[in-house]
Design a protein around this nucleic acid. Sequence first.
RNA 1: GCCCCCAUCGUCUAGUGGCCUAGGAUACUGGCCUCUCACGCCAGAGACACGGGUUCGAAUCCCGUUGGGGGCGCCA
Length: 461
Amino acid sequence: MEKVVTRFPPSPTGHLHLGGARTALFNYLFAKHHNGKFILRFEDTDRERSKEEYVDSIKRALEWLGLLWDEGPYFQSERLELYQEYAKRLYEEGKAYYCECSKEFLEERKKALLEKGLKPRYEGLCREKKLPPGPGRALRIKVSEEEEIIFEDLLRGKIVFPPEEVDDFIILRSDGTPTYQFAVVIDDLTMGVTHIIRGDDHISNTPKQLLIYQALGVDLPYFAHIPMVLGPDGARLSKRHGAKSILEYKEEGYLPEAVINYLARLGWGYGDQEYFTLEELIEKFELNRVNLSPARFDPEKFLTFNAYWLKNLETQRILPHLKPFLSAYPISNYSEDYLLKIIESVRVRVKTLKEMAEMIDFYFLEELKYDEEAKKKFINAHTKPLIKALIEDLEKLDLEDEKAIERYFRGFAENSGVKLKDLAQALRIALTGKTVSPPLFEVMKFLGKEKVKLRLMKAIK
RNA sequence: GCCCCCAUCGUCUAGUGGCCUAGGAUACUGGCCUCUCACGCCAGAGACACGGGUUCGAAUCCCGUUGGGGGCGCCA
């Protein structure tokens, strides 16, 4: 097989969201699985809506996900001459013609046809006029009215369109810029793209693109139309329906590993396996395992995947992602080893990095933020003397030895006639300020004797 | 309106004519574990959209219906 080349061609008119990211992922995985090349290309021929800002955010999102492109990014806006050359060729070969119909006129015709219950299509008014290029004239491709248009989709098999489905469509606007249909074909052709993997909303565009390939007299690439990602409500996932950008998930404390994994499982499966690393996906990804029906995005399950990776990824790989969430604290005062141990102790208890940061903030705070209500409840006339006694005992304890501490506390509770449960809550508040924390004896160990003593004293003051 | 795609638990999926009394995950319910919160473990409930064919046999193949999604731009 020739070398596989895939591409991801976002238009920089918005941030990268889950749907786009999944398309990028599948293209990336397919290319990497076959030792091929993955190209990034920005389709920015719509100068009105394209923004530099989005180019930047899409790139950052892909980088964060680890979907690194081997070539590009290309910009269609920088390749206008190329499109014009190809268009000129089609015009000179009589395969395309100039059209002088105004937008307003076409709009009217479309309305009229629609009212008659007909398919809105260009009626070929300028087809035989043999107009030369000129201002206000768009270039249309000549389309046969008799032949069915057939193509073989890698996932769905043969797809047939009746000839009347495609009219003489525009390939070059009257301002000389190419339309999407034309630009994609020329780009994919000149960039050597072998496999076009894209959302199935493009199925209906494919016939038009096929006709361009045909007119050009070149071989077709392979097409694979993957199902779209729908919102939880089953409606199309789109920016207007509040689809969040990938970068927003980053800010909410999602791990790229989780995003990748969840996205891969939307519309793709590998037996009963649920969890995959990027490396594993590259190894196992095959197009024939892609589902054909659209998948709904389920925030709940997405969170679960994040929780899974939070508790299974090596702590060294979590730390860099966690650091931005800890920026309010002087974490540079703590060793990496210390931070890793803390991560280890809370990773099973949280679902996002944000939650993780909140859960361990007490390690870094000079002044604890107490849950006042809980403090009142658990640090009372009954427990205060006990805490005082504990402070005395602290000197002779080895906080490094968790097991020993636990034995000591169990004994202490028994002797004092309180349940460890109740004593533990009082201590938890005193040491962390909260009612929920990592295991107490671990907290003491990591805090160290000095801080434990200080915090206990402060709590009973 | 016309055209195209799709159809298994709520959701993501396994399943490619007999292994299906339909498996897993998640969410849900109950229990166990337990210093809090979690994790974990055990158990439960939960689906082949419907109707016709084909076949000895259909979740799996064919047709229709219904439902969902998409497209019909000098947007991408």
